[in-house]
Design a protein around this nucleic acid. Structure first.
Lengths: 240, 240
DNA sequence: CGGTGACCAGAATGCTAATCTGGTCACCAG
DNA sequence: CTGGTGACCAGATTAGCATTCTGGTCACCG
């Protein structure tokens, strides 16, 4: 039946992506060849191109799959604890989870050493910037639920929020090695800054979080699905 | 008299630095040769080496002179309006002034295109990181004057402050060209984030600012002098 | 008909010769 | 005597070319 074939395809795609991810982290984008990925995945080179149109899109898919997993985790966390929908809690989690996943850490810290020219690829920008803050829908949701300062629109928040979060990622490779802060310490500083900068004057009630949670969970599940869709299938990457 | 000789030396140094700055901005660090700087400054190549030990230190001096001017301006502004000593006001000014000075903008945005390998020079790191936040003295001063949240020590502030400010600079080259924000809009966002994150719960009185102003002015004048000292003279750059 | 791998053009790399440039220092002008 | 100079040199950088490598294709196969 059709399901079997789809499952086979999916498993094969995962096997190839696993290989690509492994080699990417070990040798860096520049040194990894399609030939080696195909060989180690036990498929012919042409098969790789049955899944993704170009080498670039294959590696974008590696990142997209990681992102899908991360946003899935975010949605789960929000479903389990509505307090997680708060902007500073969400970004704290995003920061920690992204930093703990080698591929995403490379993406967010702009690690040219392992990502090479992939960073300047056209499709890449959309992945990083457009999705970092999740959708404007989420921000709108927070505002409507009274979980943010009420004097700001999503458009007003976008620049400073993106910039501050970006700073925490981008600073990472430049930090002195002897800085005595754990990842969680840094995440706490980030959360603190975001809560004070964008949060409402008073700590919202549990009920407000609970009311906003379903919508937020749905938004992030959708986002995760979009990344998953981008990761698999010859329909390919974000665009083009 | 000795003054005349010193003045001559200083004027010549300035002429060379002007030329170096001009060529740096026009062609980038890599393409500018000492020969051309000397020729355009109307001096022999050896003369350049009477002022600075290496090519690298010459260009560090270009940046240091700009930094000295900027911090001098900061001190003047604080002297003229004590409200400027507030952390968010100071950083707002730093951001705007640095972005408006091409050399400093290149330094702070890590513009590899014009600065080349100067960015990875050993002496460079000290210039950027150690001085971005000015000295811990300034932060201590603010805390003692009640101009910051009182639950933080300078050490606690250092990481998040540096990281947030850094983010605003580092994001600059990555911003979409059609972002409809002026430099002052961005500076306002930065100031807002810093005031909310690090500022005291209530807006401090004018008197508090006035009390802190003299010390802050002195601190920044000292800092400016240090940069000026590093810029001129064969005693050379920051160290070594 | 999904999958393969030989094949090709263009990109990347290695290599050598030729050029350029940071830094020195013997010499000079005032 | 002293501050200044520019010819000079070693090592770095670049140019030009030959060779290898690799992304992507497609005729063929099981």
């Amino acid at each position: 039946m059709a399901d079997d074939k789809g499952t086979d395809r999916r498993e094969r795609a995962d096997r190839i992506l696993d290989t690509a991810k492994d080699l990417l982290l070990r040798w860096g984008y520049r040194r990894v060849t399609i030939d080696e990925i195909a060989a180690r995945s036990g498929v012919g080179k042409g098969t790789v191109y049955l899944h993704w149109r170009t080498r670039e899109q294959l590696f974008m898919a590696v990142a997209a799959r990681e992102a899908a997993a991360m946003y899935g985790g975010v949605a789960d966390a929000m479903a389990a604890d509505p307090g997680e929908v708060a902007l500073h809690r969400y970004m704290r989690r995003l920061f920690v989870e992204a930093m703990e996943r080698p591929v995403l850490r490379a993406v967010f810290t702009r690690d040219t050493d392992t990502l090479g020219k992939l960073l300047s690829a056209p499709a890449y920008r959309s992945l990083e910037r457009a999705k970092l803050v999740a959708s404007h829908d989420y921000l709108r949701l927070l505002i409507d639920a009274g979980l943010l300062r009420d004097d700001l629109s999503p458009a007003d928040i976008d620049y400073p929020l993106t910039t501050i979060v970006f700073g925490f990622f981008a600073a990472e490779p430049l930090l002195p090695p002897d800085l005595g802060l754990t990842l969680h310490d840094k995440a706490d500083h980030l959360a603190d800054a975001l809560r004070r900068t964008f949060g409402p004057a008073r700590e919202p009630s549990h009920a407000r979080h609970a009311a906003a949670a379903p919508g937020a969970v749905a938004a992030f599940r959708t986002l995760a699905d979009e990344f998953r869709a981008a990761a698999y299938g010859a329909d390919g990457g974000t665009h083009e």
